[in-house]
């Protein structure tokens, strides 16, 4: 039985929990409530807000979705989480420009951990004041090769689309590497 993993990251309240909950076949394990009341310092018994969801493919393949904790003081968890991931999704609350800079920082951190493909989900597109994906590209100064996908985290088709686009990018990377190996 093989287990593969994808990481869903992004600033606090971007929609990570909602996103994983929409597609996961198990109730999302989320520890958010506890975290808001816990003290600033990480003590041994401090719990970390992180989501965990699952999609079973067949008897011997399962995909896990890990949502990262939003708070900065849990940054060290990212390193642990990114180990061995297939790819990652950076979620952005398109209605909150004040979080865009933070989203970019998170993106860059994850990029430095692994050279796995990623996509950006411009979330909350159902809301009136949501920025359009292409405007986000400009303001975040993201290369045209990076996929920025419109997203509504509570909508199954929308979530499927984001995950599929990420998988297509992963496939592309595999094909490129294989092509390169053949020319080597």
């Amino acid at each position: 039985m093989q287990a593969v993993k994808m990481v869903i990251t992004g600033p606090f309240s971007a929609g990570k929990t909602r996103f994983i909950g929409t597609i996961s076949e198990i109730d999302v394990v989320s520890t958010e409530r506890r975290i808001t009341t816990s003290a600033e310092q990480i003590k041994d018994n401090t719990t970390v807000a992180m989501d965990f969801g699952r999609i079973t493919v067949d008897d011997d393949l399962v995909l896990y979705l890990f949502g990262t904790p939003g708070q900065r003081r849990f940054d060290f968890m990212w390193d642990i989480l990114s180990q061995g991931m297939l790819g990652f999704v950076v979620m952005i609350d398109s209605t909150k420009p004040e979080t865009f800079r933070e989203a970019k920082r998170i993106l860059e951190t994850f990029e430095s951990y692994a050279s796995t493909p990623y996509v950006i989900a411009a979330n909350k597109q159902d809301m009136e004041d949501a920025w359009e994906p292409e405007d986000l590209r400009i303001i975040l100064r993201l290369d045209s090769s990076i996929k920025i996908l419109p997203c509504i985290a509570g909508n199954k088709e929308s979530v499927k689309n984001v995950l599929l686009e990420l998988l297509y990018s992963i496939l592309e990377q595999i094909d490129q590497q294989e092509a390169q190996n053949q020319t080597d």
């Binding site: 109730d27 999302v28 394990v29 520890t31 409530r33 041994d44 401090t46 719990t47």
Partner: peptide
């Protein structure tokens, strides 16, 4: 699996 609190 709901409401599991995990430590670091």
């Amino acid at each position: 699996l709901q409401n599991i609190n995990l430590t670091v």
